[in-house]
Amino acid sequence: MSRMETLTTPLLQVEHLTKRYGTRIGCADVSFDLWPGEVLGIVGESGSGKSTLLSCLAGHLTPDQGRVIFDTRDGPRDVLAMGEPERRRLSRSDWAFVHQNPRDGLRMGVTAGGNVGERLMAVGARHYGDIRAKATDWLGRVEIAAERIDDRPSAFSGGMQQRLQIARNLVTGPRLVFMDEPTGGLDVSVQARLLDLLRGLVREMGLSAIIVTHDLAVVRLLADRLMVMKGGHVVESGLTDQVLDDPQHAYTQLLVSSVLQV
């Protein structure tokens, strides 16, 4: 996106975000900017605080300190200072959240079309034909055959469920997508297909995304920038290939050297 150079306001500005669980640190003093069209990867081992950070950013958890400033359609606003109605409205329109387990992000008892249509109806769509047409279009975009529109996700494979979850999230044209291990639990070949799909969507829609994963191969292919977390702290951040190829922090060096070579 060439508009990236022209825009001067970050889509998301995170300042000193801290979340404690009692005396234990969830994440501590995390600050970063995310620019429109950028994909940020957050890596770290289990318990490094990456999921806590994502939950705080997406409004699922309330951090103890810090600010999360999102460039809303009416200008930059501190998401944490918003009332719940406004924040939920934001998460239905401008934000999307792709869960690791599609069952957490889908309504398993509702047809594929209903799952995709829900966000449209949530923002006021009231024309069945239009909703269905849009759902059909989106199923196509995530490579699900149109004739599966009236099937329930329980009849889908894991990869299809994950693609359906992505369609359901992107149908309202969000500007920021949070992804929690989006390719976790999928076969390697299915992962590749999903990565390709995500890359295309990010490019076509000019999406910004924050992807939490422990899979360094995934971030290398998807993320422009990388943040490495350990013990709730960001120990290193930078260009994805730079962090992976020339890691500066001891932990990052360990992480990178621990990856099995294929």
């Binding site: 990236m4 150079e5 590749a192």
Partner: peptide
């Protein structure tokens, strides 16, 4: 800044490395 380098790589600076790194299946 990383984002400046990203923009640089997109518009100004090309790189042919010795290794091809791509998303499988594409």
């Amino acid at each position: 800044e990383p984002r400046q380098i990203i923009a640089l790589r997109r518009v100004t600076l090309g790189y042919v490395s010795q290794f091809l790194r791509v998303v499988p299946r594409v």
